[in-house]
Amino acid sequence: MTTKDEVLGILMRSQGRYVSGEELARRLSLSRNAVWQAVKSLQNEGCSIDAVTRRGYCLTDTPDLLSPQAVEKHFSRRAPCWDVEVRKTVTSTNTVLKAMAESGAPEGKILVAAEQTAGRGRMGRRFYSPAGSGVYMSLLLRPACGPAESLYITTAAAVAVAEAVESVAGREAQIKWVNDVYLRGKKACGILTEAAFDMETKRLSYAVLGIGVNMRAPAGGFPDELEPIVTSVFGEADYDPGKRNRIVAEIVERFWRFYENLDEKAFLKGYRERSFLTGKDVYVVSGAERRPARALDIDDEFRLHVRYENGADEYLQSGEVSVKPRGGAA
């Protein structure tokens, strides 16, 4: 946690009363000048902090910026291992957290960013992650499971995100197999799980669960190529920056509830009920081939059950599926 985060934490816990620079310096083992620098940095980021000679500093309003303290304020429960870190900008939260995992970081590390300069989605696609638009986060997991069960991490996360969106925004969310959360027929959230396999134990060494949520449309709108297929949780009129902290907290809490008993698959019912593809005509994409099919349901292992035009059935464990446009045009 940075000096700025530690100062903000004390001021948030003392909100409404002044804390002297001397007390802050003593509690954090810092110089008075370091405290002053941290306060100025927080003020520049939008925190309402009064500074009064011989009284100290007072946080006069709960800040809207992303911060560990603001996220933690929304936890109704807390696992001992959770460690929230917030950065203004990263290349990719998954990339940064994977490096931490390789260096031995423990399970429960949560990295949150307001911007990604090299965000990634499935199949190497770029994940558009501008500042002031979304919230981007990754969780470090060290599950006691093999590769086959790792799909449960992604599907549990999809249900957790959908539940969090419904709770925070009051809007019905759907899940497009296997890892996208949809609102009003468009993608509002993407999920990317990356893992390292331990050959000796035949289990995952670690998994990094990445989640990107479009909280509002970026200034000037989404790029032309994304506009027809993506949306945001909030419109400009009902967007509240403070809800970024709440949605991070709700996603973490809801996911962890599933993760603690992953093999019980308590999230299966919620996944099925929110399935965006069930009952739709789709294309199953494999390289350049696009086979028309109908999506029938989700089975107990979260495989997508499809039936091709020739009557053959297949249960898809992974892959790419797109909704067939009305009228059948490609």
Results as ranks from 00 to 15, higher is better:
Ile251Glu: 06
Tyr206Glu: 01
Ala196Leu: 07
Lys265Cys: 00
Gly210Val: 01
Ala164Thr: 10
Val96Met: 10
Phe234His: 02
Arg294Val: 03
Ile153Gln: 04
Trp36Thr: 14
Arg294His: 01
Ser14Thr: 14
Gly134Cys: 11
Tyr315Gln: 11
Leu268Arg: 13
Lys186Val: 09
Pro147Gln: 07
Ala51Thr: 10
Gln174Val: 02
Cys189Ser: 14
Val233Lys: 07
Asn33Ile: 05
Gly327Phe: 08
Val230Ser: 04
Gly9Phe: 04
Arg13Met: 08
Ala113Lys: 13
Trp36Leu: 14
Tyr271Arg: 13
Glu22Thr: 13
Tyr283Asn: 09
Thr95Lys: 10
Thr231Arg: 12
Gly119Asp: 05
Arg32Thr: 13
Glu273Gln: 15
Arg203Asp: 02
Ala329Arg: 14
Val52Cys: 00
Asn261Leu: 01
Leu139Gln: 08
Gly16Asp: 06
Leu65Arg: 11
Phe267Glu: 03
Thr231Lys: 13
Lys269Asp: 10
Tyr57Ser: 06
Lys73Met: 09
Gly212Thr: 02
Ala293Tyr: 10
Ala207Gly: 01
Gly327Trp: 06
Ala288Lys: 15
Ile153Arg: 03
Arg291Tyr: 07
Ala162Ser: 15
Met100Ala: 15
Asn310Gln: 04
Gln15Val: 04
Lys109Asn: 10
Val135Thr: 04
Ala114Asp: 12
Met137Ala: 11
Thr93Phe: 06
Val35His: 07
Asp300Ile: 01
Arg32Gly: 13
Ser275Ala: 15
Ser129Pro: 03
Val135Met: 01
Lys187Phe: 11
Ala79Arg: 14
Glu85Asp: 15
Leu268Cys: 04
Asp224Asn: 04
Arg142Glu: 03
Arg254Asp: 08
Ala219Asn: 12
Leu42Phe: 06
Asp50Val: 07
Gly134His: 12
Arg244Lys: 12
Gly119Ile: 08
Met137Asp: 12
Cys47Lys: 03
Gly311Val: 10
Ser48Pro: 03
Ile211Ser: 01
Ala34Tyr: 00
Met215Asp: 00
Val135Gln: 02
Ala217Cys: 03
Trp256Gly: 04
Gln43Lys: 15
Ser14Cys: 14
Leu204Lys: 03
Ala34Gln: 13
Lys40Leu: 13
Ala219Glu: 15
Lys265Asp: 00
Glu225Asn: 08
Pro106Asp: 13
Ala293Gln: 13
Thr231Asn: 09
Pro147Glu: 06
Val71Gln: 03
Arg26Asp: 08
Val282Met: 05
Leu28Ser: 04
Cys47Glu: 03
Val112Met: 09
Ala70Ser: 13
Pro68Phe: 07
Gly134Trp: 14
Ser167Arg: 14
Ser167Tyr: 11
Ser205Val: 00
Arg326Ala: 11
Val84Arg: 02
Ala148Lys: 03
Ala113Leu: 08
Glu22Asp: 09
Tyr271Met: 07
Leu209Gln: 02
Pro130Tyr: 11
Leu209Met: 05
Lys98Asp: 07
Ile153Met: 05
Lys187Gln: 11
Pro292Met: 07
Val282Phe: 05
Tyr308Pro: 09
Val323Glu: 05
Ser133Ile: 04
Gly9Arg: 15
Ser14Gly: 14
Arg13Ile: 00
Arg303Ile: 00
Ala162Gly: 09
Thr93Trp: 08
Gly242Trp: 10
Gly212Met: 03
Val178Gln: 14
Arg55Trp: 09
Ser275Phe: 11
Lys324Thr: 00
Leu111Ile: 14
Ile175Pro: 07
Arg203Asn: 06
Glu172Trp: 01
Pro80Ala: 15
